[in-house]
Every structure is written in structure tokens, then in C-alpha cells.
Design a protein around this nucleic acid. Sequence first.
DNA 1: CAAATTTCAGCTTAACTGACATCC
DNA 2: CGGATGTCAGTTTAGCTGAAATTT
Lengths: 154, 154
Amino acid sequence: VDVTARSSGSTAVRGSHRPSLLYVIKQLELAVRSHLDDIVAAAGITALQYTALTVLDHHDGLSLAQLARNSFVTPQSVADLVANLERNGLVRRDRNPQNRRELIVSLTPPGRKLLTTHAHAVAALEATMTSGLTPEQVSVFRNSLDSCRVALGG
Amino acid sequence: VDVTARSSGSTAVRGSHRPSLLYVIKQLELAVRSHLDDIVAAAGITALQYTALTVLDHHDGLSLAQLARNSFVTPQSVADLVANLERNGLVRRDRNPQNRRELIVSLTPPGRKLLTTHAHAVAALEATMTSGLTPEQVSVFRNSLDSCRVALGG
DNA sequence: CAAATTTCAGCTTAACTGACATCC
DNA sequence: CGGATGTCAGTTTAGCTGAAATTT
């Protein structure tokens, strides 16, 4: 990750106009991804793959199609992502006996271990991110994010 | 854009755990990008390119290096992006006479026109996104987003 | 010479579309 | 058969690294 670019980013542009909400959301997501990549790179995975593992941690046993619908991407993209995780032994894919079209994706013990190994650093990242806010403000912030997401149909 | 995936996304996963802030931010960004792509696709550009144009609208006359530092990406990536916009006649690149290393990027009249053409639809998207919030809550939300972004060095 | 900016060449990842097989 | 799910093949876009040219 280019630390130089990150740290000097906010100094380059100071203007009179207020950036749009849409733009600030994008910038924040970029910053989060960059830091998350730093954390999980040691485990040989990307921020995207790590996020997929956390989704499975909360909702184990989803099918590929369910994962795709949850992620604004095509089933093919999810299949690629999951195939990579399977190749690294972090998830398993099993046919659903009740509906043999479906492939049920679940975390393996190494997958769970990876999550616990990095849980602390990820929590610290979230704490750093919200260090300028009170706990109440964080709670309100989360609700607002959720409200926006729901309003856009996500 | 896959409207089916978008609209059914939130129904696929309902669990006991609360998703992390980092994850919700990512989901919201994906939703915004998807809708923004729908709006600007008619103009033959991507959400990313549109966002770059809005940055130039607010801060005209930035160099490639300044744009890169502002965007968490490498100068090479920005150069590609700007080259595409230039090919479509939406921006110009001119050597800075004071510092002949620098290429100053600025909007062309067609670039400005593209922004005004879509300004209403983009504002409507932002209004839809925040339709569940009061104006005060939107203001607080913006401040929180900014606080998080600054805390991560963006 | 050192640092900053841009450029050139090649590469990788993460998405996409289209076509298809399988299952309910 | 129709709809859902997953897979295979090919493509595109958006990022990256490394190396080099130019200017200050």
C-alpha cells in the first residue's frame, strides 16, 4: 500500500465547494479498504476476501446465489471469489442434499482461525476510524449508514 | 446493472450478528456506485469517471499527481483515467508553464455540460439515499463520514 | 545529484457477458 | 417446460509494479 499517497491525500485538494455525500462515501470506503488490506495481507488474502469470510462467519451455510444477491455482484464473480477461498482451505462447498442445485458455503476451521487471528486488528481499525466520535455518535452513524443502504435497495 | 440482485439483496441474509461498520460502509458504496452507473451510463462513462469529473468541477486545474494523492491511487492509474476522459473530449491536459513537469487537468465545455446534464439525477439519488433521515441527521451523517475519513488519513 | 512528475510496458484482480448443464 | 443455480469461456476495467524520461 502506498502510505505516501494515503497520508498526503487530504492536503492536495482544498476548495470552496463541499464534496457530495456520494463522493465522501466513496473516499471513506477507499480508505477502509486500504487499511484493511494492510491488516490481512499477511494472511495472503485481500480485504474483499476477508469481508466475505466475515459474512460467512455471521451467516454460515449460504449458497453462492444467496451470497451474490447479498453483495451486488453476479453469481459468477462470487463463484470466483469462493473458489479462491476454497483453494486456500478457508471455506468448503457442499451440495445441499435438500436441493442439489445449491452449493452451501461454510467456513473451515482454518477460515475461522484466520478471522480470530485478525479480529483484534480489525476492531482496532474500526476504533481508529471512529476515534473522533462519541459512542452515541457511532451508534447514530451506524443507523444512518443502514438507513442509506436500505433506501438504495441494498 | 442487475436490478434483480440489487432489490433482493437485503432479503437473502438475516442473522443474529450485527455487521461491522466497515462492512456496512462497503455495502453502501457498492449500492451508490451501482445506481450512479445507471445514471451516467447513458453518457458513455462510468461512475468512477463521473466522480473524477466532479472533483475537477470543484478543483479545476489539478495536476495528475495531485489528483492521485487525493484518490488513494497511483499516478499511473489516474493517468489512465484522465487519458480516457481526454479521449472523450471531457477534459484537457496542459503543461503548467511555471513547472513544466506538471500536467494541468481541466474540464472542457463538453465536460461541464455533461455534469450539468446529470446534476439533477445525481442530486435525486442523494435525496433518495437520505430519504429516511431528517436534514439535521444528514448534516450529522456528513460530519461523521468526514471524521472517519480524516481519522484514517484520507 | 535528488526529488517530483509523467510516461511506457506489462501484469493481476475483480468484475462483467454469454452460453450451457443440472436440478426442482 | 420454466425458473433457479452453478459452471465454463472469454472479455474488460481498474488497479498495480517496475523502469525510464524530464524538469526543478
